Computed example of a mutant assay.
Amino acid sequence: MLTKKNQNTSTCLKNPKNGNTISLKLRIRNFIFISFAAVIMALNIKIFVRNANTFPGGATGLTLLIQQIFWRFFNIKVSYTIINLLINAIPVYIGFRYIGKHFTILSVYMIIVTSVLTDLLPAIKITDDILLLVVFGGIINGVAISICLLSGATSGGTDFISIFISERKGIDSFNIILGFNTVILTIAGFLFGWDKAMYSIVFQFISTQVLHLLYRKYQETTLFIVTNKPREVVETIATISGHSSTILEGEGSYEHCERNVVYSVISSQESSHVVKAVKTTDPKAFVNVMRTQQVQGRFYRPKEY
């Protein structure tokens, strides 16, 4: 155990990470993963979403809702691609204006490929059990969106808005978008039956939970590291995450010898990489990782490129 003795001034380091410098290898890798995510999402729509007659929320849910309205009430079959691109026009503008051009270009690619494949792929039926379709459809949807986000893009629609809010407010806003999607599902309930709307809420909830599990950029983690190499540990944290740290001087309660504690708050998405690097820097370091509920003050968050 350590008791706080006194606190040094926060170690000031320039951020060594350059979010605008991306290697060609990384760009190619991201392009491949985004293409894979687009195929998964299109297949998910054709196999799970449409067979369950659910509306997953966001731009996808709104597109499917408009398609259903045109078909049910006007007997007109409207292209998924056309509707989805029109709906994404404003979110794409928000992406270009406030999030990042390269990020938005990759997202537009994701939107176009997903839309075209959704129109071209044949419908595939694997089960009549709506609950199974909803549960597995929600899981697959969350996985596809997570792959997309981790590869430097988004599936479009409300994802742009949620990222914009998260960048501005520094919070995880995907639950806010879940509330927004409830409006779409309410309209679907009035028009096509409340059972479809309730199944859609389950779908969206499962998808959001999977997204929280796999994509943790807007969740923070606090590190307390007891080490005999505080400067090296601070450098390691800054190199990997871009975050500075505070070095605390303490005293071991058993041996009554001086100990150094490095305190830092980083993104949960980076925590496993940082901890591994810290243990490499100082194999004898004692690392305490804690979930952070809220951070007030200057907290560096790398921008989307």
Rank of each mutant, 00 (worst) to 15 (best):
Gln294Leu: 10
Gly19Leu: 02
Asn260Ser: 13
Leu178Ala: 07
Gln7Gly: 08
Thr227Val: 04
His273Leu: 15
Gly297Asp: 08
Phe286Trp: 05
Ile32Met: 14
Asn6Leu: 13
Ile201Asp: 08
Leu248Trp: 04
Thr292Lys: 06
Ile266Ala: 09
Thr239Ala: 15
Gly100Ser: 13
Ala42Tyr: 10
Ser151Met: 11
Asn141Ile: 00
Met110Val: 05
Ile69Trp: 01
Phe103Ala: 06
Leu120Trp: 14
Gly297Trp: 03
Ile176Ser: 10
Phe190Val: 10
Asn75His: 11
Val210His: 07
Ser207Arg: 04
Lys279Pro: 00
Ile161Arg: 14
Thr54Phe: 06
Leu131Ala: 08
Thr221Met: 10
Leu62Ser: 07
Thr236Tyr: 13
Gln204Ser: 14
Ser264Ile: 08
Thr118Tyr: 02
Ser272Phe: 12
Asp195Lys: 07
Ile22Arg: 06
Cys12Thr: 10
Gly95Tyr: 04
Ser264Gly: 09
Glu249Ala: 07
Asn51Trp: 03
Lys14Leu: 12
Asp172Thr: 06
Ile69Asn: 01
Leu185Glu: 03
Phe164Met: 05
Ile111Val: 10
Ile112Lys: 10
Pro122Val: 14
Ile145Cys: 05
Thr281His: 01
Tyr300Val: 03
Val289Ile: 11
Pro91Tyr: 08
Pro302Asp: 09
Ile32Val: 15
Leu117Val: 15
Val265Met: 11
Glu167Ile: 10
Asn84Gly: 06
Asn20Leu: 12
Gly95Ala: 03
Gly297Leu: 06
Glu167Arg: 05
Gln269Ile: 10
Leu248Ile: 00
Leu117Ala: 14
Lys196Asn: 11
Leu2His: 12
Ser35Tyr: 03
Gly137Lys: 05
Arg97Ala: 05
Arg97Tyr: 15
Leu191Trp: 14
Tyr199Asn: 13
Tyr98Ile: 09
Val108Ile: 15
Ile130Leu: 14
Gly242Met: 11
Arg29Glu: 13
Ile47Gln: 02
Thr292Val: 15
Lys303Asn: 12
Ser79Trp: 10
Pro91Gln: 02
Ile165Asn: 03
Leu86Asp: 09
Gln204Phe: 05
Ile82Lys: 06
Met198Gly: 12
Ile111Gly: 07
Phe203Ser: 13
Tyr300Gln: 05
Ile266Asn: 13
Thr236Leu: 08
Pro283Cys: 13
Val202Ile: 15
Leu13Gly: 01
Ile171Ser: 03
Thr127Tyr: 05
Ile247Thr: 14
Ser264Val: 00
His102Pro: 00
Met198Val: 14
Ser151Ile: 09
Thr154Tyr: 00
Ile176Asp: 09
Met41Ala: 07
Ile237Cys: 13
Pro91Asp: 12
Ile163Cys: 05
Leu149Pro: 04
Asn228Arg: 12
Phe33Gly: 12
Ala59His: 00
Val108Met: 12
Ile82Thr: 13
Ile225Gly: 02
Ile87Lys: 02
Ile126His: 11
Glu249Tyr: 03
Ser79Lys: 11
Lys5Ser: 13
Val234Met: 01
Arg50Phe: 03
